[in-house]
């Protein structure tokens, strides 16, 4: 899979890297059991801070997409669900747009409920 980040973009670098991995899993470019590049190596080739990559990997672990094990690195989880991930991504986009329009949490939930037949 391709990691592509823009150091001048407003979005934090760790978020960009995490988004790339999510996209890779969604498109099937990385599959269950596959190892992601070692954090140190990825930080070196992208010329970003090691902690930025570690933060991205940590977030993906919190989302139950990857496992982080000492010595084995970051491995895509067997139960990483591409379909569910797609929904999460859509929800993220929805929340982002809603925030931009100044909506609060209750209003967002109302819209979701309204959309449910």
């Amino acid at each position: 899979m391709l990691f592509r980040v823009d150091v001048a973009a407003a979005e934090p670098l760790a978020d960009q890297i995490a988004a790339q991995v999510r996209g890779g899993i969604m498109r099937g470019e990385v599959t269950a059991g596959e190892r992601l590049p070692a954090a140190r190596e990825l930080a070196e080739v992208l010329d970003v801070n090691l902690h930025t990559v570690l933060r991205a990997y940590g977030r993906l672990r919190d989302e139950d997409l990857i496992e982080l094990r000492r010595g084995r690195g970051a491995v895509v989880r067997g139960d990483a669900d591409a379909a569910r991930l797609r929904l999460t991504e859509l929800a993220r986009e929805f929340v982002r747009e809603a925030r931009r329009q100044g909506l609060g949490e209750t209003e967002m939930l109302e819209i979701v409920k309204g959309a449910t037949p």
Binding site: F3, V5, V7, E29, L42
Partner: peptide, 9 residues
């Protein structure tokens, strides 16, 4: 300002 890297197994 863009950086890119490719990796596959």
């Amino acid at each position: 300002t863009e950086r890119a890297a490719f990796s596959t197994t």
